[in-house]
Design a protein around this nucleic acid. Structure first.
Lengths: 338, 338
DNA sequence: CTGAAAGCGCTAACAG
DNA sequence: CTGTTAGCGCTTTCAG
């Protein structure tokens, strides 16, 4: 491992100049710069991130705290963030808080405070007041994705609007008996999301003059299996079966499609089904859905942090830009049976 | 942020003693230790990882290089590794090489050389000779999971044996016309895996005196969709339809189940289907499979590295322990139709 | 634009 | 068992 000194010697300049040339901060003449670059390349020199961090106080490393790795939304956000960081020369250190409070507090009390990260991205985690405060005290920017954190810049789609759009799609097709599979409010890390989606559904119905029937709601856990069982309940009734189901996630919607099939129902002839996400499998199942773009959300989170960490000339944090979503109509929705 | 000096002062000892007490290396009297611990707790002191790393040469951080985040096997390995590291006080920095060679070389030439990691776990990546050499030169231990890297300790299930077991399960039930959905050798990052599984399948057939028929093979990309299309081909033939399908992954097996259903075939009455993995969804689909345990593989990779990084008294790297796998018979396999 | 030099906060000999 | 002290390798004032 060549050190900065060797590079300086080979380039015929001081270590200070090498540092400036390589990091881009401070002015260096073009000729010095090219000499340094060449010398560094020749020696295969790479800065020691520790020495650099210690001296500068910046780590070029971002912490991502995330509750699941094996769910589409989460892995997509992670992928987006990782890619965006890699492009900017940043590392990503991962904290997967699948577990209990013990793991969680250890991450906050130990890991994040080790000065190993410049900033934190919290995905679908409702941080507590002290957790947020602690990070702020350390001067670490924090941005949330997917769960509202009070007092913190957070990227979330407008869940109410998304759910409303999905429901309105069904209403426009002529459906009136529309069931909803949503989250189990008791058991969710982030109870806002299912609640908001349910509200969007209810607003849409009311606006259309359709009464909200609590029997047309079934809770599930956002998985295919959960959606399957919930849909079985909803579709298994002997009378007044719903003609459509709006599921709060694509996975539950896919479970619903499978449940419908098992009950001998043809989708969309006998029942229409729509979800939210535009999951990898949505296209395969011909599922109509409202797409959100989690990868983009991960990338955007990085952009926001970068503007705080390395304020550019183009200034101005793009305030609360609303996140995009988009209705994708496929073959799981149609007019209700006559 | 309190520093080590303040802790030393409060505890009435030197910084060296604080360092020793907190890191556990070197002897410290019980009384000093408890004073230090208390002082540290009181001040909310946490070591600066950079300063510590710079001085000691150890980072307590492991790099994980992985090609996918959104596939069950990969996210499970990652989860296992993350958990095991967290428990030991290590961080995990993630390098997701979904992309082309550019990204890849940048990770190897830049990121991994920044001295930010003590060791590397490479998941299903065939590292090139120079990449391995480079890491070795730096004295960074390296362990592979899931793809054979020449000259490197690698954790992989015995793919031949696993495939053989799955196939033998079908043979034992009385099947003779057994199709196989495997990898597309052209397009795989790791072509060994599909090849080995195909070999296992063929060996099992031969040992049972069944001729291998190349028309009973269909390539796919390890996804549900891919398995669906491949199975359609295999099951759609008008004559001599296979009575069983062995898919090289559960996702492809699930695709096959869906394809069979669409063709009006009842599983397992008309066709038996078995996969490999024990994917999250396997149970839901009643899929018989050979379970591998990717989480465990991630954890084990960490253990191996730890023994190199912090050689314990219990010494001895547990050499090439074979990884466990296990036949799980559910409801997708049965005797062939009469 | 460039160089000299003072640390960044901790660890690891080395003495004692 | 504990304190003293010299760095770890780089960045960044501060002069020039």
């Amino acid at each position: 491992m060549a050190g900065i000194e060797e590079v300086a010697q080979l380039a015929g300049v001081s270590t200070a100049t090498v540092s400036r040339a390589l990091s881009g901060r401070g002015h260096v003449s073009a000729s010095s710069k090219s000499k340094v670059l060449e010398a560094a390349a020749q020696l295969g020199y790479v800065v020691s991130s520790n020495a650099s961090s210690l001296a500068s106080g910046r780590t070029r490393n971002i912490g991502v705290v995330i509750p699941f790795l094996n769910r589409w939304f989460f892995s997509s956000v992670l992928e987006g963030a990782q890619g965006a960081l890699l492009r900017r020369g940043y590392d990503l250190t991962l904290y997967n808080l699948s577990g209990d409070g013990g793991e969680r507090s250890s991450v906050f009390e130990h890991f994040l405070l080790r000065q190993r990260v410049d900033a934190v991205i919290a995905v679908s985690l409702e941080l507590t007041e002290p957790e947020v405060t602690r990070l702020h005290e350390l001067g670490k920017p924090l941005v949330g994705v997917g769960g509202p954190i009070s007092g913190v810049r957070t990227l979330t789609i407008d869940d109410v609007a998304v759910a409303r759009l999905a429901t309105e799609h069904l209403l426009a097709l002529g459906h009136r008996r529309i069931a909803h599979i949503g989250g189990d409010v008791e058991n969710d890390l982030d109870f806002h999301l299912p609640t908001n989606r349910r509200h969007g559904y209810e607003y849409a119905l009311r606006d259309a003059g359709v009464e909200v029937d609590p029997r047309q709601f079934a809770p599930a856990d956002f998985t295919i299996r959960g959606g399957f069982h919930a849909a079985k309940q909803l579709l298994g009734v002997p009378h007044d079966r719903p003609t459509a189901i709006f599921a709060a996630s694509d996975e539950m919607a896919i479970g619903s499609i499978l449940a419908a099939r098992e009950l001998g129902l043809v989708v969309p002839r006998d029942v229409s089904i729509i979800g939210i996400d535009d999951h990898d499998l949505a296209d395969f199942f011909g599922l109509s859905t409202v797409a959100q773009f989690p990868r983009l959300q991960g990338e955007k989170a990085v952009e926001i942090l970068m503007e705080q960490l390395e304020p550019g000339p183009d200034a101005a944090v793009p305030a609360a830009t609303p996140l995009p979503f988009e209705l994708r109509v496929r073959s799981s929705t149609a007019t209700p049976p006559a």
